[in-house]
Amino acid sequence: MPADQQTVLDEILLSDLYNDPYPIYRRLRAQAPVAWVPAANRYLVTRYDDIVHLERNPEIFSANEHGSLMTRIMGHTLLRKDGDAHRRERAAAEAPMRPRTVKHHWLPLFQRNADDLIDEFAGDGTADLFQQFAGPLAARNLALVLGLRDALDTDMQRWSQAMMDGGGNYADDPVVWQRADTAAAEIDDAVYAAVRHARRQPDESVISAMVHAPDPLTIDEIRANVKVFVGGGLNEPRDSICVATWAVLTHPTIRAEVEADPARWRAVFEEAIRWVAPIGMYPREVTRTVELGGVTLEPGSRIGVCLGSANRDETVFERPDEFDINRANKAHIAFGGGPHFCLGTWVARAQVAQVALPTLFRRLPGLRLSDTEEVRLGGWVFRGLLNLPVSWTV
């Protein structure tokens, strides 16, 4: 790599990626699609085709990264395992999140939760939907699906943020580690109580499924995997609700289309997670010498799989920076790919596209962005809105 190009990469800061990673990704895709970025302490992989390739070859690009930040705070989760070990834990957890169970068991409960939350502020005429709707709804729904019967919305949101911050703590901030460790201990206590209940009274929850699987998971395996579900299973629906709502409110033509045909909310959801991928980057580790994107990677090389970049790859998506629910190519990879394709995909689609979005626009007439407060975004490992101030007609 030319010295001047490496100098440019050396100048990339985590703060720049947090504020707005897309200009950086655009430059990397064009000039250095597999680039060693010192601030991230890994090679960032930014092109769509390279990411699809590596996900199809997990024996070379392993999820079991040594020294993983996620493993440090959560334990050895299924997201950091490959092969039979991964398949065993995934199989134990997946039944409650299959489409049929989501449709017949969880969907009515998600709708009840959405209506209950909107009831609390519908008469006010203003709200921050991030704080008052999207976050609490994602938290409440996830607690139900996991079987964390005694966890409050506030607990779930605090735990999730701490897990996400820890998993993305590439700056090695000790305050972030302390917050993550505290949350991890509290999740362990909640899981222990849920496991005891599930052993006495099996139900449709993920924890119950893991307890009663043909090859049951140990308590340590359940605790680790609940942490990863809390970390990723709350922010993705929360952030996609906010991004999708913001997008529709700023695109009047799209708003008219979906309000005329509610079936189009599914397209809004899928485009929202392409446009701003909630899980923007995750790690992999190279197991043998391999070439990727014109770069030779040696065993042990750490890479960052940048979904947020791949989903805006101009060689795959026309006008990738625009929000367009009618684009010809809808093949985003916001849910990842290969053996690690997101286990909660159908849960996310149901609670966002079938419940949250249509319910918000139906129940809050004249919904519009605040005239006095700006919408803020942040993040690159996880990215989404930080607030969503709105008003409507009472």
Rank of each mutant, 00 (worst) to 15 (best):
A3L: 09
D4T: 15
T7A: 15
L9S: 04
L14W: 11
Y22F: 12
R27S: 15
P38T: 01
A40M: 12
Y48M: 08
I51G: 00
V52D: 11
H53E: 12
E55Q: 14
P58Y: 11
S62C: 03
T71E: 10
G75Q: 06
T77P: 01
L79A: 11
K81E: 08
D84A: 15
R88M: 11
E89I: 15
A93W: 10
W106T: 07
W106M: 05
N113C: 12
A114T: 09
A114I: 06
A114V: 02
D116I: 12
E120M: 09
A122I: 13
G123D: 03
A127C: 14
F133D: 04
A138Y: 12
A139G: 02
L142R: 14
L142Y: 01
A143P: 01
A143E: 13
V145I: 09
L148C: 10
A151D: 00
D155M: 04
S160D: 01
S160M: 04
M163Q: 08
G167W: 01
N169H: 05
D173T: 05
P174H: 04
Q178Y: 09
A183M: 04
D188V: 13
A190M: 06
A190V: 08
A190N: 13
A194K: 08
V195I: 11
A198D: 14
R200H: 13
P202G: 07
P202D: 11
D203V: 07
E204M: 12
S205L: 05
V211W: 15
H212L: 07
I219P: 00
R223T: 15
V226E: 12
V228W: 13
L234R: 01
L234C: 01
P237A: 02
P237F: 01
R238P: 14
I241G: 03
C242V: 14
W246T: 11
L249N: 05
L249W: 11
L249D: 05
T250Q: 15
P252A: 13
A256D: 15
V258N: 08
A260T: 10
R266N: 06
R266A: 14
V268K: 04
V268N: 01
V268M: 03
F269I: 13
E271R: 11
V276A: 13
V276S: 12
I279P: 10
M281V: 09
M281W: 07
P283A: 05
R284W: 02
R288K: 11
E291Q: 05
L292C: 00
L292F: 05
V295H: 07
V295Q: 09
S301W: 00
C306L: 04
L307Q: 12
G308Y: 00
R319N: 00
P320W: 05
N326F: 04
A328W: 01
A328C: 10
K330H: 08
I333W: 04
L343G: 10
G344W: 02
P358W: 04
L360W: 09
P365N: 08
P365G: 07
D371E: 10
E373V: 15
E373A: 11
E374Y: 07
G378C: 03
L386P: 05
L386R: 07
P389R: 01
V390Y: 11
T393Y: 08
V394A: 08
